[in-house]
Write a protein that binds this DNA or RNA. Structure first.
Ligand SMILES: NC(=O)c1ccc[n+]([C@@H]2O[C@H](COP(=O)([O-])OP(=O)(O)OC[C@H]3O[C@@H](n4cnc5c(N)ncnc54)[C@H](O)[C@@H]3O)[C@@H](O)[C@H]2O)c1
Ligand SMILES: NC(=O)c1ccc[n+]([C@@H]2O[C@H](COP(=O)([O-])OP(=O)(O)OC[C@H]3O[C@@H](n4cnc5c(N)ncnc54)[C@H](O)[C@@H]3O)[C@@H](O)[C@H]2O)c1
Lengths: 238, 238
DNA sequence: GTCACGCTGTGAACTCATTCACAGTATAGC
DNA sequence: GCTATACTGTGAATGAGTTCACAGCGTGAC
């Protein structure tokens, strides 16, 4: 099974969108329905499910609970993921709050910050420690994943320290490119670059009347699965 | 010139990393230096600069201020971008704060929220309006870009309303896949999927000893530009 | 019971992105 | 001045990722 980062990303959205359906409304789903739900092509959906060895029937499509289970088996770590947050600033707190409320399966079990205001407090169930306690806490709670939401200049130091103490993968919100030992995984989220794309392609849209014109095409630019747009206000669906 | 979303993303990080250098320290840079800075290959950097028609010299590499200017000319809208934020929650406020402080070139000129607590307040220079004022405000301030940070069920309605009133591109933090008219651009930021990738590849790293093993490879997994890692604590560089 | 339909599973084709590899060239050192 | 060097610019090769297109099949209609 050839597992790429994009496949994992799509599996994650397949699952999330399946779970968002009215529970029990559909226990079976066709590739083209799931595709519409997540904004992909039916062929890609079938290919992905084939890749993970999940098989449907031509008559009824794919079994929804079964698919969710299969994806869970693949993505969810057996013991549940213990995650550490470093930098309990505006962004860090938003993340703690959101995941605590809507995705408790991601267990943020420790936070770290330099600010004495934050240390000792508990944010959405996640206790904030001083940096000095990092080593002990990481090892004691067997934390394997980290989220970096500190100012850019602190990112590399913090990352190194995490990885030295058992953390094997990071989500990095900083524009800094982190140097990691081989084997460690870093997922960068660069919001400035994302906004820059929005501005660029939005501007193009204006100039060229439409993005599909001659020479430009973002991957999901012109997202429009046009079918549903003749109607007027596609009021909050799904 | 063939412009893809990935190119824009890289140009954005090229520029940001060039600007982060001690100003004036280097006025020239080689492709391999810039590549190391952003974690890409030298060949790709050269190809990108070629694509945007920026040319260097074999003797001294590329002119840094010139390159920054060239990228700005390409990415920055002439009048400055007017951006609207919808949903002044935890995430929305983090975004307003961050961009106001560190990237004021992205001008958040209006925010919208349903909560009476928020309406009328100013967040980091950005006034929060009631939803009823959306049409008027968008048109009056000629807002062409939007950021969606409302709960998922409100996302489609809000997006449609924005696009109906002149907004041409959106940054969407919601897991909802937005239906857009052709020509509009949507950039999705799916933090849950990103975290899921971190957990998956971090776990693999453990099992398989290292990611480059047999059959897996995330795009920037094993980010390690190993060169610099023999040394110990790569203390916050650049 | 038989037929037509519409879907899955999948090899092959294709498209897009990245890397290779090298010719061309400006400098630094001698 | 001449040579060795180390880089850029770029066509061509490679590689990933996606889509095409169709054989095979279970089901519902009649
Ligand atoms: N907020 C955003 O929208 C946004 C967007 C893009 C990038 N980022 C990145 O995320 C980072 C955090 O953003 P924010 O808005 O939460 O900033 P913030 O200033 O609100 O939070 C930073 C937090 O990190 C803590 N901190 C500082 N140095 C530390 C260290 N060495 N170790 C541990 N904690 C430390 C501070 O006490 C503070 O609580 C930013 O610096 C930026 O690089 C944020
Ligand atoms: N915070 C995160 O880390 C995170 C992570 C992933 C996704 N998201 C997405 O971003 C959204 C916002 O996250 P948050 O943490 O800021 O949530 P939040 O609850 O703090 O903020 C939501 C804000 O939207 C406002 N709102 C609600 N309905 C609205 C409407 N119809 N029009 C305008 N405003 C409306 C609310 O008043 C509130 O201020 C989430 O719902 C989620 O879909 C957030």
């Amino acid at each position: 099974m050839k597992v790429t980062a994009r496949l994992i990303e799509r599996l994650s959205t397949y699952r999330r969108n399946l779970q968002r359906q009215i529970p029990g409304a559909k226990t079976r789903i066709y590739s083209h329905e799931l595709a519409a739900l997540v904004g992909e092509t039916p062929a890609l959906v079938r290919r992905d499910l084939m890749t993970i060895g999940f098989t449907g029937s031509p008559a009824h499509g794919y079994d929804v609970p079964g698919l969710i289970a299969k994806i869970a088996e693949l993505l969810d770590p057996p013991g549940g993921a213990g995650i550490a947050l470093v930098g309990v600033g505006a962004l860090g707190r938003a993340i703690l709050r959101y995941f605590h409320r809507v995705h408790p399966e991601f267990r943020f079990v420790a936070a770290f910050d330099t600010s004495p205001d934050k240390v000792g407090q508990v944010f959405d169930g996640c206790p904030c420690h001083a940096l000095d306690d990092m080593e002990a806490t990481l090892r004691q709670k067997l934390i394997a994943f980290g989220v970096i939401a500190v100012p850019a200049d602190a990112a590399q130091v913090v990352a190194t320290r995490l990885v030295r103490n058992g953390v094997r993968a990071l989500l990095n919100f900083t524009p800094e490119r982190l140097q990691m030992p081989p084997g460690a995984y870093v997922e960068d989220v660069d919001l400035a670059a994302s906004l820059e794309k929005v501005v660029f392609f939005g501007r193009l849209g204006a100039t060229h009347a439409a993005c599909p014109g001659a020479d430009m095409a973002g991957p999901e630019s012109c997202a429009a699965n046009q079918d549903a747009y003749a109607s007027d206000l596609p009021s909050a669906n799904s």
